[in-house]
Every structure is written in structure tokens, then in C-alpha cells.
């Protein structure tokens, strides 16, 4: 992806997370915990499972629709990060060719089943992770992590990173634009220029860190980054958690999909 795409992409994600919907208003802790449980449940399915994974699409679909997140945007982002899983997974049908099933006369090898299983798990886990941040502001996620016991120092790193991500990306973009304007065709994108660009960006970052430190001192900073508690767990958060857990448990342990198929 080009720099600009990445930049606008992350900006769009960030803006989505500040919307006001039912999902956005849920307590970040509830969403973080629900997401983690969801991910665990999905990857706990064995290698050749595909059928029982189907109901789990309900979770991302509900977040997507109730949270009013554009489907295409999420799908695009999923495709962008898919190469590694696909690349590793595609070896399964090549290497594991034992016939595992004959469905409507077509024989299916075990490799294809396990590959399909990887793809389904990929779609479920990635969409759940993306939807967490699309429906929860990043500072919200950080406060949730802090209150779930992550070290304060680490959480303050995340918050600084988030705050200056956009500022530094803009700075990097200006530097890249300047490079592109003066490098005709391929010249100017080699190692030397690249290192120089990163070096300049680094020096500017250092100067900025110094100014930020000064600004912090001016407002009484003495080693701790204080923050106020912001949210309280409300009834709807507990309800959301309870329903999610029940949903995960039911579809993890009961062969419902199959049952539906048999009845039909």
C-alpha cells in the first residue's frame, strides 16, 4: 500500500471509532473481554472444523450493522492483511490430498477442508479485531487495558503513540512528498535517500519529544501520567457480556448448525 492509502485508512478507522451507536457506547472493558473470548473460542476449534464455525459470523455481523460500520471497508482491510495466512494455508491442499469427504458427488481432500477452516478462522478473528477498534475509541481501549491490569507505563506508551501517530504521519508524508517531487521515476528511492529521510524524521521526532516534555513540565508533570476514571460498568455492558458468553458457549459446544442441516 502506498503511504497515502495507509494514512487515510487509519484516519478513517479512527473516525469510525468515535461514532455514537449502541455498540460504541458499551464499556470498552466489556468489548475487550468479549473480543478476546470470541477469538479464543474461534481458534479453539480443531483443524478440520468448518461447519461449526458458521454461526460465529453472527458476532461480527451484529457489531458491523448495529455499530454502523461500512462492510466494504472492513472486508478491504481483511484482504490487505490476508497474504500470510493464505500463503501458509494454501500448502494444506497441496500436501494433504487424502480424500476426506464426498459431498454431492464431489470428493474433497482433507487439505482443502483444513485450508477452508484457516480461511474462516482468519475472517472471524480479523474482523472481530478490526471491529473492536472500529467501535471503541483507542483511548477507550487503553483505559480498559489499564483497568484490566496492564502496566501504567505501557498504557501511557500506547496513548502517546496514538496521539502522535497522526502528527508524525503527516510529517512523514510531507517528507515523502518532497522526495517524490524531486525524484523523477525511480531515482531518489534508493537506500541512501531512504536512510536520510528516516534520519530527518528521527531528528524532528527527537526535537518534538523535547518540546512535549517541556509542555508536560509546564503543567506540573513529575513522572506519573494521571487520569480520571471515566466509565462505570452499566447494566447494558453486563447484558452484552452475558449474551456474548452464552452465545459462544452454546455454539462452541452444541452441534447446532449440523442439527439445523439435518432437520432441513
Amino acid at each position: 500500500m502506498t503511504f497515502d492509502t495507509l494514512y487515510f485508512d487509519i484516519g478513517r478507522m479512527d473516525r469510525l471509532s468515535y461514532r455514537e451507536t449502541f455498540v460504541h457506547r458499551l464499556d470498552p472493558r466489556a468489548k475487550v473481554i468479549a473480543t478476546i473470548l470470541f477469538l479464543f473460542t474461534v481458534i479453539s476449534f480443531p483443524k478440520y472444523e468448518i461447519v461449526a464455525l458458521a454461526p460465529f459470523f453472527l458476532y461480527p455481523v451484529l457489531l458491523l450493522t448495529v455499530g454502523e460500520i461500512p462492510v466494504r471497508f472492513i472486508i478491504k482491510k481483511m484482504i490487505v492483511v490476508s497474504p500470510f495466512a493464505v500463503f501458509i494455508g494454501i500448502f494444506n491442499p497441496i500436501l494433504d490430498t487424502r480424500t476426506a469427504a464426498v459431498i454431492f458427488g464431489v470428493s474433497l481432500s482433507a487439505g482443502w477442508i483444513s485450508f477452508l477452516s484457516i480461511l474462516l478462522k482468519f475472517a472471524l478473528t480479523i474482523s472481530a479485531a478490526l471491529l473492536l477498534i472500529a467501535t471503541t475509541s483507542f483511548p477507550g481501549v487503553c483505559h480498559a487495558l489499564r483497568r484490566l491490569g496492564f502496566p501504567a507505563l505501557f498504557v501511557s506508551q500506547l496513548l502517546f503513540l496514538y496521539r502522535y501517530l497522526f502528527v508524525l504521519m503527516e510529517e512523514a508524508m510531507r517528507i515523502v512528498r518532497a522526495r517524490e517531487m524531486r525524484s523523477f521515476g525511480s531515482r531518489g528511492t534508493g537506500m541512501k535517500v531512504f536512510v536520510r529521510l528516516i534520519g530527518i524524521l528521527f531528528l524532528r521526532t527527537m526535537d518534538r519529544a523535547e518540546r512535549i516534555y517541556y509542555a508536560m513540565l509546564s503543567r506540573g508533570f513529575h513522572g506519573d501520567i494521571p487520569s480520571l476514571k471515566r466509565s462505570r460498568i452499566a447494566f447494558r455492558d453486563l447484558a452484552f457480556m452475558a449474551i456474548t458468553i452464552a452465545f459462544l458457549a452454546v455454539f462452541r459446544f452444541l452441534p447446532i448448525t449440523e442439527g439445523i442441516g439435518r432437520v432441513a
Binding site: 502517546f160 496521539r163 502522535y164 508536560m216 506540573g220 494521571p226 480520571l228
Partner: peptide, 23 residues
């Protein structure tokens, strides 16, 4: 400060304005 981006170092406006009083 001259550049508000250096001055506003907290992730939300509320946190930023609260930073001084909390300290």
C-alpha cells in the same frame, strides 16, 4: 506554546485539560 500539537499531548481534550489540575 507555539505549536498546539506539542502542547496537547494527551489523547483526548478532556484528559489534556485535566492533566494540569490532576498534577
Amino acid at each position: 506554546f507555539q505549536n498546539p500539537d506539542d502542547q496537547l499531548f494527551m489523547p483526548t481534550v478532556f484528559d489534556d485539560v485535566a492533566f494540569g489540575p490532576l498534577n
